[in-house]
Amino acid sequence: MIAENIAFGVLAASAVLAALRLVTTKNVVHAALYLVVVLASVGANYILLAAEFVAVVQLLVYVGAIVVIFLFGVMLTRAQIGHESELDNDQRGIALVTALFLLGILSYVLIDFFQDDKLPELTGVSKATLQATRGTGAVGDAIFSTYLVPFEVVSVLLLAALVGAIVLARRD
């Protein structure tokens, strides 16, 4: 119980700090590396929420693939590798106000509504039940039965994005 909370504290702190650095750093490549930290911490949080498959997918897809694509983007747009002064535009103030305003409202609503609600305890539940209700097998079953149509739609979307990205980026 306490171990979980400590783990959450460490992960949440590293996620938030890295996210803050991501939006303030003066170095594009560092930003991509901070993104890795954020994504990995968030992925570890998924394990705390008993969603190990999503956590692994997060690592594979985000940290493995998307960050690499970002680094390609950085490289192909010939961003300066290293310190760069002009990464922020002139509306930092507005952005800060908007973000803090949003955060205030969100926090107020969440604390007001959920109060001290607890996540259900999983320690007493048997391993078999856990596997059947929220394990990887259950996710697979749900995707290929209940959510088969959304799954197919997503696959078509990926195909469309693939074709679209090629059409946009190719030279002719």
Binding site: Q91, T98, L102, I105, L106, V109
Partner: peptide, 20 residues
């Protein structure tokens, strides 16, 4: 586009505030 974005988020936050 970022100014439009600022307006969008700001207006959404205001609406949320009104709702709350």
């Amino acid at each position: 586009v970022q100014q439009y974005g600022a307006l969008l988020f700001g207006a959404t936050a205001l609406l949320a505030l009104a709702l709350v």
